[in-house]
Amino acid sequence: MNRPQPQHRTAVDKGSAAVEMVLATPLLVLVLLTVVALGRVADARLIVSDAAHQAARAASLARTDTEAHASAQSIAHTTFTDAHSACTHPRVTIDTDGLTPGSSTAATVTCTADLGDLTHIGMPGTVTITGTAHSPVDRFRSSP
């Protein structure tokens, strides 16, 4: 059985691995930060969609417009707080359509996902995310 003979390094090859590592490391860190940023955006989109769904449902269960707006705002902010989201300054807009039986309520949730803290050098980076959900008002409930 023939074994390949080990190749001997020459003086020219010494230190080339270190140079390659120095050149490749910043690129690998950049790829890692990009993956983290995309993960934060995907997580924020899921949370915004969930908050919009919960706000629309809470509004559809309310008996008055004032109660619908208050409960939708409250549940949306609770959703963001419980999820420890990267979103800042969430805004909730509710369209109750008068809460008439058989109608639909709509909740639109908008927030800004902050990505600037990924590099610790103050690089700006925000993404605005919006989610809308609809929930029907029970057709057989009594009018307020």
Rank of each mutant, 00 (worst) to 15 (best):
T81K: 06
A55K: 00
R57W: 03
A62E: 06
F80P: 05
A55Y: 03
T78S: 15
S85W: 05
S60G: 13
I94W: 06
T78E: 08
A68L: 01
S85D: 11
Q73M: 08
A56Q: 01
A76N: 12
T66S: 10
D95L: 12
R57A: 05
I75D: 06
T64C: 08
T81I: 09
D82A: 14
S74N: 15
R91W: 08
A70K: 09
R91F: 11
T64P: 12
A72R: 02
H84K: 14
S60D: 09
T81A: 15
T79C: 04
A86W: 12
C87T: 01
G98P: 05
Q54F: 06
A58C: 14
A58T: 02
V92N: 00
T81F: 09
T88I: 09
A52Q: 08
S85C: 11
A83N: 09
D95R: 10
R63D: 04
S74M: 10
A59T: 00
S74W: 07
A52S: 12
A76C: 14
S60R: 00
D97G: 01
A70E: 05
D97Q: 15
H69F: 11
S60W: 07
R57F: 11
A62M: 04
V92P: 03
T64I: 09
F80D: 02
P101W: 02
H84W: 12
I75E: 02
A58H: 09
A59D: 11
D65L: 04
A58L: 13
A56Y: 02
D82S: 14
T78G: 02
T78Q: 14
